[in-house]
Design a protein around this nucleic acid. Structure first.
Length: 254
DNA sequence: CACGCCTCCTGTGCGC
DNA sequence: TGCGCACAGGAGGCGT
């Protein structure tokens, strides 16, 4: 989404903002009058740099999407641009977040303030990741979803990375070997998913409404009852950290 | 502080 | 066909 949005927004001025009041919106109207200098990303948050040292923060939640000029009953916010286009934030379940904040001031957005390293950057170091996994008493899946040990991993990619690394989602206090395998699997899974323009399982749509191309490459998520692609054992699910987790009982032992 | 459960929202798909 | 229930790419709040 960031890659699609950046060339469309950068250099344009937001001339007006209309947002329906939502508890998860913060000062969205303050984007009006500001020019977009670039679109970045931290974890699952889009960070649009505005002039005058402001940022427009966007989190799509589970069902959020951004589209130009496609309004309907689920349009929660509209950003009118200086060229006449309107960027629409659509969000059926209203779990998405919008905020305009002074650049870098994330105290009202704790998930962003406490975000761990970017998984595809050099900041994501094996040693520090392994130390976190060894220290924490929570199941590894909870750590992955927590955004603190590593940024940007959600339920789909957590299951994919754990399957690829051969690590049980409920495992605790991972040792260095499993930590290293998981570290590599996270990078591989996310890198490939981005190459395929994201995973559309239900709702995800890109800026033009197109689905992502990564779903056919999923090995674990959504494959409960289907044979493991590695050993043909039927995949099972259990709930870890409040989320359904699909795993191979043979390849992924506690 | 860390962990685990509950909550916020609305739609969809299933069994009965 | 209609109803009720379980469940869905997330993260924040609260109790322990």
């Amino acid at each position: 989404m960031r890659r699609q949005l950046d060339p469309e927004l950068t250099g344009h001025r937001i001339v007006a903002v209309h947002a329906t009041p939502q508890r998860r919106f913060i000062a969205v109207e303050r984007a009006a009058g500001h020019q977009v200098l670039g679109v970045g990303r931290r974890g699952k948050f889009l960070v649009c740099t505005l002039n005058d040292h402001f940022e427009l923060i966007v989190h799509l939640g589970m069902t959020g999407s951004l589209r130009f000029d496609h309004t309907d009953t689920y349009a929660r916010a509209q950003f009118l641009l200086d060229d006449g286009r309107t960027l629409i934030f659509r969000d059926v379940r209203r779990f998405g977040r919008l905020a305009v904040v002074p650049a870098g001031r994330y105290d009202a957005i704790p998930a962003l303030a406490n975000m761990g390293p970017e998984p595809l950057s050099d900041q994501f170091a094996v040693a520090a990741f392994a130390a976190e996994l060894a220290r924490s008493s929570a199941p590894v899946k909870a750590l992955l979803l927590g955004q603190r040990a590593v940024a940007g991993v959600g339920n789909i990619y957590a299951d994919e990375a754990l399957w690829r690394a051969g690590v049980h989602p409920g495992a605790r206090h991972l040792g260095p070997r499993r930590a290293q395998r998981l570290h590599g699997a996270i990078r591989d899974v996310l890198g490939e998913a981005i190459e395929h323009d994201g995973t559309t399982f239900r709702d995800y749509q890109g800026l033009s409404g197109a689905s992502g191309g990564n779903a056919p490459f999923l090995s674990a998520y959504g494959r409960r009852g289907l044979p493991c692609l590695s050993c043909s054992t039927l995949l099972r699910t259990l709930v870890v950290a409040g989320r359904t987790s699909t795993y191979c009982p043979r390849c992924q032992r506690r």
